[in-house]
Design a protein around this nucleic acid. Structure first.
Lengths: 197, 197
DNA sequence: AAATTGATTGAACAATTAATCAAAAAATTA
DNA sequence: TAATTTTTTGATTAATTGTTCAATCAATTT
């Protein structure tokens, strides 16, 4: 929490992170360099190394920043609802809305998750986040509590969690086609309710 | 198709592509270099440039190779079934099975799709493949024909196609947890049938 | 006003990169 | 066998990378 404070507080660090997000979206992780980020932020390359211990550190902080933002967006909307059904509907709608509203953030997140690797070369997207992924935990809780309160029928929450998360992620590639977010949200929600109700 | 012939025929090219797949899986796209691929294939770096016009060309050919392999695997199993319901079940099962059986191929595919970009910096994963994505077309056809033959009820095939593809892709991140493929396949199929039946 | 601190620059560094190319080797043709 | 073409090597090239560092700059404290 000491880390978190300085993370949010430091304006320069946030400026660098925002520049990194822009560059990641514009030219992708492969071509993203500290020089390009510095150029975008209108600062020198050395300053980035002054505020972050290295490129990896910067990318990790950028990832944390993005995950936090998405989590706040979704949780804010879910928390306003009372019943498990309404929470579930809100989760799906918020998940879809975030991707459309914050496309740059979404793309930057993808670029990092599918490129960054641990020192022993394990890709981030293969890391088991189990306890760490708050978004997944939130969805799991909604489904489980809905079953306890008899709002939902019997099913495996882990499987349906994966289906819903997959349907939200995958939507990114479908919106380019002829279907709108509103249509997709409506019909996806309808389909999911068929499963859980 | 002249390209496709020489693509399949040339043993050296396939050797290089297979080495590229291995390296991509081991160290990821970012660290993958022609030198590393040459080392894995036990050839010189120059030879890669002789057979491919550049790194981009090699990655494009590797991607084609991987997409083709997956398509053949799935279509083979779907084609054996007669009814739309059985085809749908076969599609899901084959899609899941391929990811588990050919994990290296799957990871290499992800590495390329989420890194390669067109000359104007459009990421591959954002390209609208519409007519090009045979896997998606196959699934769309199964769903549409099932509706025509009254096997399936009324729903938007485009939406359900996205849901199913998402559920298959996303499964990769769930298998690491405590659930098995067999369980996931069974319960996913059950859920999807609830939607379409 | 002097001194200390943190912030910032930009040049220099070593390491890697993809690509080139002349030369050698191997395979094919005559 | 001789000549020719295709394949392969490995050293070289030019460009870019992340990081380091001595030197300024700005602000605050003493």
């Amino acid at each position: 929490m000491e880390d978190r404070q300085s993370f949010i507080a430091n304006a320069r660090r946030e400026q660098i992170i925002k520049a990194a997000i822009e560059v990641l979206k514009e030219i992708g992780y492969v071509k993203t360099s500290l020089a390009k980020i510095a150029q975008k932020a209108k600062i020198s390359t050395g300053l980035i190394s002054y505020h972050f211990s290295g490129k990896e550190d910067l990318m990790n902080n950028t990832l944390m920043y993005l995950v936090e933002k998405e989590w706040v967006f979704i949780n804010e909307r879910v928390a306003q609802k009372q019943s498990s059904t309404d929470k579930l509907i809100a989760f799906i709608e918020a998940g879809l809305a975030y991707q459309v509203t914050n496309k740059t953030n979404n793309i930057a997140l993808i670029e990092i998750v599918f490129n960054a690797r641990t020192p022993d070369d394990t890709p981030y997207y293969l890391l088991e986040d189990d306890e760490d992924d708050m978004k997944q935990s939130l969805l799991l809780d909604i489904l489980s509590q809905g079953q306890e309160s008899k709002e939902f029928t019997n099913f495996d929450p882990r499987v349906i969690t994966t289906v819903i998360q997959g349907a939200i992620s995958e939507s990114m590639f479908t919106f380019q086609n002829n279907i709108s977010i509103e249509q997709y949200n409506e019909k996806l929600t309808e389909s999911i309710l068929k499963i859980v109700k």
